Amino acid sequence: MTSRSLATSIGLTAIVMWASLGTLVAVSGRIPAFEMNMLTFGISGVAATVWLAATGRLGVLRQPLRVWALGVGGLFGYHALFFTALRLAPPVEANLVNYLWPLLIVLLSGLLPGERLRPHHLIGAALGLFGAGLVVTRGRGIAIDPADLPGYAAALASALTWAGYSVLSRRMGAVPTATVAGFCLATAVLSGVCHLIFETTVWPRGGVAWGAVVGLGVFPVGLAFFVWDHGVKRGDIQVLGAASYVTPLLSTLLLILAGWGEMSVSIGFAAVAITAGALIASWDVIRPASRKSRSGDA
């Protein structure tokens, strides 16, 4: 396995961790969005910073302002815009618009030095978008109310923010992934300020709820951002973008297994579309491996 393929594989683990987000949030109770961000990013940021201090690497946090602007803008900006969208527009439709970010990553990555956008990348991303649409709409149509347009605009802005953060992180490949620790801490502080201004505090109730909050901080709102940063900087960003459409499918399946939903025909079709899209978009990675296997057999 090449270093690029290994980095891609590491980045793909973020998708698996993000798939657990919905289930863990459901188990944690009705905690306001910015408070949840404050708690979970606080856990990941503090833990990662303590690790940097223990290994004598706190110096990596001394980065130019543009690096901090990108990191904090990506993590905090994305979540703030997405939560705003969920408040101003129907959640299902807002979630669908937000899930344009994998497609945007594939498209924008074609502008990066050394990258080339090929037809199979577009086909794979389009199939993934179709599958994600089936998941979040459950096969039903979408009715647009003009009153919801501000929410849809916020959802589109959140998609552009995360896609932009992911693609521009590639341009800052020399910045150590460990700096994500500082981005998480800053996001926790900003979320805490927003929580005090806009929300009423609701603490998790019981050990299970607190365990879910800790799980969120360790995995989908913690480690996932570190492996994603490594993947987009050193792996195949187009494969990562297209494969990200697996997230809503896996998330829905986990919720079903946990008893928070039911299986349907539309989810079955979505599974086929998303899997096919991910395989097609990953053809550049799969083809060399298959060629190597055939030459070895010979």
Rank of each mutant, 00 (worst) to 15 (best):
S109Y: 01
S109P: 04
L100K: 11
S158Y: 10
T177S: 05
Y99I: 12
G141M: 05
P146T: 09
G151D: 10
G124C: 09
G114W: 02
H121R: 05
W101H: 09
G124I: 07
L112H: 08
L129F: 14
A157C: 10
L134Y: 00
E115Y: 00
I105Q: 08
Y165A: 01
I123T: 06
R118S: 08
G128C: 00
L149S: 06
L160E: 11
Y99W: 06
L168N: 14
L129N: 12
L129E: 02
R170K: 04
P150Q: 11
M172D: 14
I123C: 12
G131Y: 05
T177A: 04
L134N: 10
G151V: 00
I105H: 04
L129W: 14
R138D: 15
F130Q: 13
Y165T: 03
A126G: 13
G131Q: 03
Y152N: 08
G114F: 07
R140T: 15
G131T: 05
G110F: 00
A154V: 03
Y152H: 13
R171N: 00
V167G: 01
A163T: 07
I144K: 04
S169Q: 14
G131A: 00
Y165L: 02
A143W: 15
S169Y: 02
H121S: 13
S169A: 09
L103W: 13
D145W: 10
S166A: 15
I144P: 14
L96K: 14
T161H: 01
R116S: 07
G139W: 05
G164Q: 04
P176G: 09
S166C: 06
V135Y: 00
M172G: 09
L160H: 03
G151F: 06
L100A: 01
A178P: 04
L112S: 03
P150I: 07
N98K: 04
G131I: 06
W162Y: 15
R140M: 15
L108V: 01
G114R: 03
P176K: 05
H120V: 14
R171V: 01
H121Q: 11
A125C: 14
D145L: 11
P146F: 08
L122C: 13
